[in-house]
Structures are given as structure tokens and as C-alpha cells.
Design a protein around this nucleic acid. Structure first.
Lengths: 327, 327
DNA sequence: AAAATTTGTGCAATCGATTGTACAAAACAG
DNA sequence: CTGTTTTGTACAATCGATTGCACAAATTTT
């Protein structure tokens, strides 16, 4: 029996007689035959493989986004090949090369913080590699996007702080070349301005995303006897660090000082006091990105077509900012 | 210029003249040529690809294990292809087929809880697919393993509870067909027996791993006015659920009731009171599994050689079980 | 019963890189 | 200046599955 017949029998081609087909399939099962996907993909030029590039897999947001993607890709028969960049630009470049070299059908990316040059992405787009960004993207690169409305999230939480009567509100910011953190800053600023609130440059603490940095900033505030009324942090982790240091030093939260974070990391619910933060819908974002990519892969789109979906983070108010309730 | 020359030039074969080599490499860069890995892998029969099968990617333990693997595989030039099973046996089977079909060099697995038949793994082993299990394995399958010493971890924490003066100690258990949970139960039991402590069958709460289940069990204990002295849970999540319900009902922890979990999920540090638990060294386990697989791929081993590495979890004592301190 | 159509299978080219072998050109030796 | 060795490049087969085309057998039509 020829290879072609076998191939067609396994592929359920109508021209193959029922008898042969069943014989082949039965025999294949017995011999435990597994078609070599490499060969198949090579010949067909497509392999039902989607590449994913993310900064870190062990972050609540990203691992949940990936889980979300899989709920979409699996039923459609796509597999995921996941690369971590560890926030490093070069590693991101490499991952992109690897994925393209492996002829993935498309790529879902969230950019590394180390990335400041975007030519590798632009080039990929120009070569026609279907690309979808989620969460962290860059304006320059013309590709599909699934984003968080960080601006509105930040605006809302800052508004909330103002409503609670906090006036001198500090912002723990992230690297401003990343859209995500820049927009959080903008939302924060907009809310302040709208309320005609006092704002001075050192209300902005730059690159304050980690627990350690949050701790040291808080310690410095205490040492300088220069406490703000409230802190809106772009990261739950630095908010946590600050909260712990303040608490240890007997500063009452939320009465003396309010703290809000961003991302609704699992621990925020359980710190004392529970922390106000913003939920990001990571799974939905992952799903949406996957859907968008598959749509692009399976349906023809006009050349310059790009699509953007935006998710609005949900404000989760907890005791760490409820000054009115906790008088 | 022939394809073979190009291939050799890019591969830095000594027989290619420096001039040609540089010309080729330069031109390749200009044309943005990326060798088709599919074709290359097909021809070479190897692809520097490692498959990973895990229950869920968005679990602290697993996502950190994967991060650990990457620290080893990346420098060695291997890529990871990750599949989630969602604890489902059939999905696990499929993932295995997919990975083998894609001719991965080897596979790192942590079994799904739904898996009760292991023939697919045995068959893979027989076919010579290099397999390394981590955390969740099965005795029947002869393959390399990286495991947690769940027995000793459970033994230690139970011992600790006994030392703190708790007597009626309940165990929230997981599915006993999974080695991990079975060993936790055994360690718990051993500690009780050694201390000559009273043990009755309903001290064992089966399949109690989720927060919701922990809550309902705790509620039931309260309703029945049948509180134990302490709980050792095989999962931080169910421990959390119980802790929250007890607290809401005014039961003093650790004075009236001690609670310990397993896995050192991030939130355990921040609940009130902070929860005693066991740290699992997920990254190290991932690293170890990756190292073991690569060793097997790159070094010849005798046929029946299998290796097992065991990590001892570290007891992290926090206030939730410190009855003596919190009198 | 011959012609036309349908059905079932095999041949051979193909995807793109790799590699053993062959052969031409250059370098060297005698 | 001829013969030998070295160097550099090309040819062609290969990995394994897929697929257009061709052709034989079976079935239907006239």
C-alpha cells in the first residue's frame, strides 16, 4: 500500500474506499503510528501553532492570560509555544526569531520592559507575520491589540481617593516608556487636575514596582517625616511593601494614609487592611487576543486592517482606602 | 550558489572559504533569511524542543516550575512547548500525542488528577521518548522523577501542631490516587501514630482542596459544634477557606484552633493570622527536572537507568499555629 | 455490449535544509 | 612541468507527509 493512500485514508479523503480506510486506520492504531508533524507542517506550510511572547510566565496576570488563550486555541486545534523574555529586549528578539523560524502561524506578544526599539516587530509585521499585542504594546507597530484601559482605571481609583478626602496623593509609577504605566500615570494626573488638587513633582515616584522598592520608599517617607495622604501605586507589589512598612511604624491605614494598588494580585484581598486595587480580567484578555489572532489567520482581512479591543479594569474598593467608613 | 554551500556557510563549516562564508552570511542578513526550522528538524531528526505537560499553568507552583525550567533550557538552546491538561486525563493523552507528533526531544510531565490509567506514559517510555516526571508521578511508570518529599513535609507540620499542644487534628486531604496527596496523608498519619494520638476516621476530610470546600467544611464543623483542635490541610486554598469562616464566626486562631496549609501560596503570608505552611521550591524543582532531561538527551545512559531527585519542603511556621506564643 | 463515468489507488514531485560523495580548481611537491 | 594533495563548491539523495495527475477497475449509461 502506498504512502499516499495511507495519508489519504488517515485524512478521511472521500475517494478512499471505506474498506481501505478502516484497514489503514486500524493498522495505524496497532502500530501506534503517529504522523510526523514536522513533515506535515513543512509540506502544508501551516502547522496550527501559535507563538506567545511574554515577560514572565510566573506572574498572575500573564499566567492567567495564557490560561485564557488556551481556552480558545485548544478547541480550534492550535497549540501554543510560549517564550519568556524576562523583560529583556534581546531575549525578546531571539524569541521572535525562534518562533518565526519554527513557522508559527501567528504570534501573541506582550512587550518586555527592556524593549525600546521596535524594529523587530515592525519587520515581522511587514513580512506578514500575523501579530497580536496584548496589554503592553507600542503605538508605532501597526498590529492588532487587546489592551487594558489603564488610563480610565487609574483615573477612577484616583478619583476614589479624592472622594475619600485624601489630598496629597503620591503615585508609584512604572517605566514611562511602557504604555501601561504611562497611561496609569496620565489617568492619575487627569483626576488630580480635574479636582484642582495640589500636585508637586515629588508626588511622582518613578520606577516603583517591586515590594522592596515600595518598602524603601515608605521608609524614606517616614524618615523624612513627609507622609502623603494617600498612595496610588501602579503595582500591587510596591503598594504592599509600603503598606507593610507603614503598618510596622504604627501608621494607621486608611485613617492616616490610604493605599491603592493595581492588578488585584491574590494577596491584596488578604493583607491587613485589605487593599483597594483594580481587577484586570487577565483571562478574558488572553481569550480575546487568541480569538483575534485566529480570526486573522482564518479569515481574509484587508491589508491595512488592524483591530483594537479595550478592557476597562474594575475598581475594587477595600478597606485600605475607606477612610470614611473606618473613621 | 548552491543550497548546500549556503547551508554550510551558515553552519560555519571549515571547508567553506572565508570569502564565501562572509558573503553568504552578509547576504542572509540582508535578505532577512531565517532557516526553516521545520525542514531542518525534519532532516536532522532532532529539534531542540522540550514538551511540558502540566495540569494548569496559572498555579503558583506550576508557573514557577516552568520559570525554573526555562532558566536551564534557554541557555542550552532548547525551547519549551507547554500543554495544559486542566486535570483532565483525555486532554493529557492528547497533549502527549501532540508533543510526540511534533517530535519533541523529550517531555517533562506533572500528571493530571483525572489520570487513573497510565498506559500512555508507559507506552511513550517503551517507545524511547525521554520522560521526566515532576511532583505528580506514578510508581508504575519507569521514568526519571523530581519529587517533593510530601511525606516528610506533612510529618513535620503535623509534628509541629502536636508540639503546640493540639490534639484532635483533622486533615483536609486531596485525591488519594495522586501520590502527592497520598503521601501528605501518610506523613500526617505517621506523626499522629508516633505521638500516640487519638485518630478517628472523620478526622480525614476527603477531596478538600478548594477554598469553597474549605469554607463549607468549616461551616459544617461550626454547625455541628464539632470543632477539632487543629487542621492540617493538603492545600493552602482549603485552609484559607476554613480560616476565613472560622474567623468570621469568632473562633480564635490559633488559640482555639490551629490551621496549617501546604504550598506557601503568596497569600498565606498576608492572611490574618499569617498561615503556617510548607514551601515547595517550585523553581528549583523545575530546574532540576530540566537538567535531568537534558542530561538524558545529551549523555548516553544504560537502558534501565532512572534517576529520582527529592526535595524536602521547608516548614514555614506562622501565627496560625503558634498557640504557645499567642496565649 | 460498447462507451462514458465514477471510484480507488499509485507515481512522482514537493516543502527546505542537510550531508555523503564527486569533481574542478588551486596549491604544492618533486 | 607533471603529479599529488588540499580546498572549495555542486549534485543528488534524504527526512516524512501531502497532493496533482494518471491510470486501472468498477459501475453506470446508452
Amino acid at each position: 500500500m502506498s504512502a499516499s493512500t495511507v495519508s489519504r485514508a488517515l485524512g478521511n479523503y472521500p475517494r478512499i474506499s471505506k474498506k481501505t480506510r478502516e484497514l489503514v486506520q486500524q493498522t495505524a492504531r496497532e502500530l501506534n503510528y503517529r504522523p510526523n508533524q514536522l513533515a506535515s507542517n513543512l509540506r502544508k506550510g501551516k502547522g496550527k501553532l501559535i507563538g506567545v511572547i511574554i515577560p514572565r510566565i510566573n506572574r498572575h496576570f500573564f499566567s492567567h492570560a495564557i490560561a485564557g488563550m488556551e481556552t480558545i486555541t485548544n478547541p480550534s486545534g492550535y497549540n501554543l509555544m510560549i517564550c519568556q523574555t524576562n523583560e529583556d529586549a534581546e531575549s525578546e528578539q531571539q524569541s521572535l526569531q525562534t518562533l518565526i523560524g519554527n513557522r508559527v502561524d501567528g504570534i501573541i506578544v506582550s512587550m518586555a520592559s527592556g524593549t525600546k526599539n521596535f524594529s523587530h516587530f515592525e519587520q515581522a509585521v511587514n513580512e506578514g507575520v500575523p501579530l497580536v499585542f496584548f496589554d503592553r504594546y507600542n503605538e508605532q507597530v501597526e498590529a492588532d491589540r487587546v489592551v487594558n484601559d489603564n488610563f480610565s482605571g487609574a483615573y477612577e481609583v484616583t478619583k476614589h481617593l479624592i472622594d475619600q478626602g485624601y489630598k496629597r496623593i503620591v503615585h508609584f509609577a512604572g517605566p514611562q516608556h511602557i504604555n501601561v504605566y504611562f497611561h496609569r500615570y496620565l489617568g492619575y494626573k487627569k483626576a488630580l487636575e480635574e479636582s484642582g488638587l495640589y500636585f508637586e513633582p515629588d508626588f511622582l515616584v518613578s520606577d516603583c514596582l517591586t515590594r522592596a522598592r515600595g518598602e524603601s520608599i515608605a521608609q524614606k517617607m517616614i524618615d523624612d517625616a513627609n507622609l502623603p495622604d494617600a498612595i496610588f501605586s501602579a503595582s500591587d507589589y510596591s503598594a504592599l511593601g509600603a503598606l507593610l512598612v507603614f503598618k510596622k511604624n504604627g501608621i494607621k491605614i486608611p485613617q492616616q494614609l490610604g493605599i491603592a494598588g493595581f492588578a488585584n494580585e491574590p494577596f491584596t484581598e488578604f493583607v491587613d487592611p485589605p487593599m483597594t486595587t483594580l481587577e484586570q480580567f487577565s483571562e478574558e484578555i488572553g481569550q480575546s487576543a487568541a480569538r483575534m489572532l485566529i480570526d486573522r489567520l482564518e479569515n481574509a482581512h484587508p491589508k491595512k486592517y488592524t483591530s483594537t479591543v479595550s478592557f476597562k479594569p474594575k475598581l475594587i474598593v477595600r478597606d485600605s482606602t475607606l477612610r470614611t467608613k473606618n473613621k
